[in-house]
Simulated assay, not measured.
Amino acid sequence: MNPILPSTELLGSSQIEIHYRRPSFQDMYHITCAEDANRILRLYINTKQLDLIECFWLVLLTNSNRVLGISEVARGTTLGVQPNPKYIFQLALLANASAIIIVHNHPSGNLSISKSDVRETEKIQKLAKLMDITLLDHIIISSESFVSFAQERKL
């Protein structure tokens, strides 16, 4: 007779179930370049707040670069934003994303890529590789324009 361990009793009664349904293929936006990502993102974010505080968004993509979803993953101050990589990859895994694009804004309008922007990108890129997720780009936007790490060969 095997005794039932307390941990088995507690864990044995719990179940995790995931339901996933991708959007209809015909309804999914297709991203082929940074300009597409910038245009599509601006359809879903509050562009009136781009000059107020820094925010960080995640674009979730299929293997063929079709948009599964867009999510604001962090909100900061006028001085910066600190995204949580755990939350970024939690969303990517739940959406079954094959690729991601990360985006944040510079309220000042200055689109220069900072050292901290590069460090954050490198950290997210390393984590993405571990999970077989492709980091396609990191885009910095302002109310007037954008800059792409991929186009600037920083990725």
Rank of each mutant, 00 (worst) to 15 (best):
T32L: 07
K86W: 00
R75A: 09
F146C: 01
I124T: 08
Y29V: 08
P3M: 09
I88K: 03
V147K: 00
S148M: 03
G76P: 05
S142H: 03
D51A: 12
L10N: 10
L61H: 09
Q151W: 04
H138K: 02
C33E: 13
T121L: 08
L79K: 07
S148V: 05
I53D: 06
S114W: 02
S7K: 11
R75G: 01
T134N: 04
H106T: 06
R39W: 05
P107V: 03
R22E: 15
M131T: 06
T8E: 15
H30R: 15
F56S: 12
T32F: 10
A34Q: 02
K126R: 14
I101V: 13
L155I: 15
Q49S: 15
T62P: 06
I16T: 02
S64M: 12
L60H: 03
I31C: 07
I45L: 11
D27N: 15
L41G: 07
I140W: 01
S142T: 08
L91H: 08
L5N: 09
W57G: 07
P85S: 06
G109A: 04
R66Q: 15
N84S: 10
D137G: 04
W57M: 07
H138Q: 02
L135D: 04
Q82A: 10
C33Y: 07
L10H: 04
G109Y: 06
P85I: 04
A34I: 04
N110P: 00
T78R: 12
I70Q: 08
